[in-house]
């Protein structure tokens, strides 16, 4: 399934070592080549059908996300707007998931678009993950304000991001960033971690 890695390059491939060096202050790594599909639908029945197809109910509330497993493996569904979701699945599952979603949304109005390479994904955790984010993100990420599953679109420093709280108590986050902004964001994360790395070394 990953036979074509030799001809695939993720936006932060060149940053692997630099990001890894931020540990243990900040555990951060790109999760490359995830399947990402932008789904638009406002019909509740169609949304429910899509959830059944993937084995994970779509988030009902703004700024939340859901996670579950089904025929396509682990799938996350992120709320992006009142009729917009981002479905995130493992690498190389695009065709099957897209077909399943397209079949489920019909006959209601809606759209499914492959946006897998539009954004790349960073997993972020560690004792200072929340501190580092607080240097550039105006959203309150305290567990009481942003519990596990919270998923917001906002600005991190000067880049638009989707920020998901994977585990509020353990300070684990996922960042999705437009591919063209990925290197900027990586550079920003390295810079924002400087003090915390020094404090731990």
């Amino acid at each position: 399934m990953t036979a074509d890695t030799s001809v695939r390059t993720s936006p932060l491939a060149a940053w692997t070592d630099r990001l890894a060096a931020l540990a243990p202050a900040l555990d951060v790594a790109e999760r490359p080549f995830l399947t990402q599909l932008t789904v638009r639908a406002r019909d509740a029945v169609a949304v429910a059908r899509m959830g059944e197809a993937l084995g994970v109910a779509f988030p009902a509330d703004p700024c939340t996300s859901t996670r579950g497993g089904g025929p396509f493996g682990d799938v996350e569904v992120l709320w992006m707007g009142p009729d917009e979701f981002l479905v995130v699945a493992g690498p190389d599952r695009r065709a099957l998931v897209e077909d399943a979603l397209r079949a489920a949304v019909r006959p209601a109005r809606g759209a499914v678009v492959d946006t897998s390479a539009q954004r790349t994904t960073l997993a972020l955790s560690g004792p200072h993950a929340r501190d580092v984010l607080a240097h550039g993100c105006a959203i309150d990420l305290h567990p009481s304000a942003a519990p596990t599953g919270t998923c917001v679109q906002t600005l991190l420093a000067r880049a638009g991001v989707v920020l998901r709280v994977d585990d509020a108590e353990c300070d684990a986050f996922t960042l999705l960033v437009r591919s063209s902004f990925a290197e900027y964001l990586a550079a920003w994360l390295c810079d924002a971690s400087v003090e915390y790395r020094a404090a731990l070394s």
């Binding site: 703004p62 700024c63 707007g81 009142p82 105006a138 959203i139 917001v152 679109q153 906002t154 600005l155």
Partner: peptide, 10 residues
């Protein structure tokens, strides 16, 4: 009306 209070820069 959907996301709640956010900074005006958004």
């Amino acid at each position: 009306p959907w996301c709640g209070p956010r900074e005006e820069a958004e």
